[in-house]
Design a binder for these strands. Structure first.
Lengths: 223, 223
DNA sequence: GTCAAAAATCACAGATTTGTGATAAAGTAA
DNA sequence: TTACTTTATCACAAATCTGTGATTTTTGAC
């Protein structure tokens, strides 16, 4: 299910958007301030952000920049003013689109659909936290400036982990997705070895990315 | 360079759009009717279509549907009327966005940028001609119903060919992209071998996809 | 702390991949 | 046609990849 982070301080608008989005089948995390939005971003890892430019504790633009630095999550601006300038500034920051209030809910929903349709099919997700730089599409990875080459399995594993960053991937799920079904709990060991190899290539003492949850599975942390 | 197909019957608007787009670095094919647009589409294979809904010889919607059936080329509608209904109809047909006349050229250019940014980075291109089915993102290929497994190099090669389908890829370009630079004309032979292996997996007497241009390079035909 | 289960690490070998060399086939120009 | 160049094909070996086994380290419950 697609998760949307909604940041809008107008109580009423926030609520009605929430309702409409949920009705459409999205999972919604709603924030009323930049601070809250930041927190929710990190815990929820939304697929798309719906962002009011004017929030009580800061401009939406700043939050947008912050997000875009970390990962290429689509951002759609909600703006009260229909100024060309505003829209252009949004685009400069990498926003995908904008709607001016008041807007038609139907149109907004279509815009979301279009963007998410693209995103879903977009595997060129690039991540960068200053040390590690991952381009899933190109299968290119840089750690601390050095180009790193991954084997096919390592790449598949990395993709699986990063695409589900922040959430625990149980052994059964991971094995299932890595080796087409049937594997199940058979060779948890093979998985461990590949995790090990991946860690060897990506991590260093100061930069850990793959964490193990005892008895459960693995999880990507960071970004 | 990104090619844009512009279909707009208003002489003046067509011309100024042409100018602005070219100035931005796009290559533009301009049409004044649906008929012309259709012809240009087939000869030029544009990356994006800028489409007026009202053309003298037919509705833009129809042309949009026709295009979308063949391939997933992004379409951006130009509409005189700012009616919710119009926009929704466009979206239903798979349009990426729309602008209502009169519009800000700057905004239009940003919208184009956003869409093309997505497209460029979109590797989940699936092709299917009944015999061969390719999902570049998933690295899955089926030929005549049978799942085919490709090695990493084969996959890279296929991707390169298919993403530039219809156009000749010279040896130097292909070698350059397959083996990071420097290779140049050195091992044209290695390329030939990999082409051969790919052909062995994908083709059969009745289904040929990779054609050679004597002394020049290779080219993907089909789709 | 002790202990057992889980995870990490390392070396190894079978399997796969991939460029090279040799040879055959096909294309081009005279 | 003939001579010559380019491309295709096949077999082989070096390099790489990848799961298994053996061993050590870590974890969590008692």
């Amino acid at each position: 299910m697609q998760k949307i982070l909604l940041a809008e301080d107008d109580q009423e608008l926030n609520q009605s958007l929430c309702y409409a989005l949920k009705r459409e089948g999205y999972s919604v995390a709603s924030a009323f301030s930049v601070k809250e939005a930041r927190r929710l971003y990190q815990s929820e890892h939304p697929h798309l952000i719906l962002l009011d430019v004017n929030l009580p504790d800061g401009e939406g633009y700043e939050f947008c920049r912050w997000v875009k630095e970390k990962a290429d999550i689509p951002v759609l601006f909600l703006t009260a003013r229909d100024l060309e300038e505003d829209a252009l500034r949004g685009y400069e920051l990498g926003a995908e689109d904008y709607v001016t209030k008041p807007f038609s809910m139907k149109i907004l929903l279509r815009k979301l659909e279009v963007i998410l349709r693209h995103m879903k099919s977009e595997s060129r997700l690039t991540f960068d936290d200053g040390y590690l730089r991952i381009d899933l599409d190109q299968a290119k990875v840089q750690a601390g400036g050095n180009e790193i080459s991954l084997t096919p399995t390592e790449h598949r594993l990395l993709k699986e982990l990063v695409q589900n960053r922040g959430q625990l991937l149980t052994y059964s799920i991971l094995l299932d997705r890595m080796w087409d079904a049937g594997a199940q709990f058979m060779d948890k060991h093979a998985l461990a070895v590949n995790i090990n190899r991946l860690r060897g290539k990506l991590e260093d003492p100061d930069h850990k990315y793959i964490s193990n949850v005892y008895g459960m599975g693995y999880q990507w942390i960071g970004f």
